[in-house]
């Protein structure tokens, strides 16, 4: 029983700020500023109703989900063949290339914010979903390549050779046999691309203004212009937790593998 003590205390610590955020999101502004209470005294859904009825708010979520999905599709489909090459073959400069890819995961987004803005403005993609999706490829493609390479290296090479003997052409082998064999890896890579694109806020804020404005930008604007609407901000924040909380259930057995770039 005592074994559970430390993990339980830790989880309580993790849940406290989330509980407080939820608590705030069900309060009226007056109550937030006027009293200190552990539960909402005048329980209200107004904050959530405002988010779901005001286009300025719910479009933020739609925009964010759109670029995140585009990014996930691009990252995983580009990374698949590359990861296969890294897991099966040795070629000139392979190790250096693998490290170079990782360096882009290490690049501080603050370094790239301004040049990214100029680059995407120059090719007329500023304020589009595709711009954010492409920009997030900077760190998501390396991530996907690393995760997939980890999973693919676990598939014995005999599988490739057998398919070759059976007369499969390479594309058919890849789609019909190999991809199902690394299906869990593809799922995990997609999940982590989704997640990192969802949590990243500096680039998505820099690259959008009106048409493709992300939820982060919407929240920042509310925090600064609408004064002190903490309840609304809390409700918006609480809603951003949901997508992650839903999808994590599906990858629960591979969480560590994904967070470690496929290296566990």
């Amino acid at each position: 029983m005592s074994r559970w003590l430390v993990p339980t205390l830790y989880i309580v610590f993790l849940l406290l700020p989330i509980y407080w955020l939820l608590n705030m999101s069900f309060k009226t502004t007056n109550e937030i500023l006027g009293t200190f209470a552990l539960i909402p005294l005048e329980f209200t859904l107004d904050n959530y109703i405002k988010i779901f009825t005001d286009p300025a708010w719910y479009r933020g979520y739609i925009n964010s989900i759109l670029y995140v999905v585009i990014n996930t599709v691009i990252s995983v489909s580009f990374a698949l063949p590359a990861a296969y090459a890294f897991s099966r073959y040795r070629f000139l400069g392979d190790k250096h290339l693998f490290f170079w890819l990782l360096t882009n995961r290490m690049a501080p987004p603050a370094v790239f914010a301004l040049p990214f803005f100029q680059l995407y403005a120059a090719i007329d993609l500023f304020d589009t979903h595709i711009a954010v999706a492409l920009a997030h490829c900077l760190f998501n493609i390396p991530l996907a390549v690393w995760i997939l390479e980890g999973f693919m290296s676990g598939v014995p090479k005999q599988l490739d050779e057998m398919a070759y003997i059976d007369g499969y052409s390479f594309p058919r082998f890849f789609v019909k046999i190999f991809m199902p064999a690394v299906a869990s890896g593809i799922g995990v890579a997609a999940f982590f691309c989704f997640m990192y694109s969802w949590v990243e806020m500096l680039l998505s804020k820099t690259l959008t203004s009106v048409a493709a404005k992300s939820i982060a930008a919407t929240m920042t604007r509310t925090a600064s212009t609408a004064g002190y609407e903490l309840g609304l901000l809390a409700a918006a924040g609480a809603l951003t937790i949901i997508p992650g909380a839903i999808v994590i259930y599906f990858v629960r057995n591979y969480i560590a593998r994904g967070f470690s770039l496929g290296r566990v």
Binding site: Y10, L14, I18, M195, W198, M201, A216, M219, G244, A245
Partner: peptide
Amino acid sequence: VLMALPLLIPWN
């Protein structure tokens, strides 16, 4: 799953 929750929350 509960422990992974903070990792999935947008940074802002």
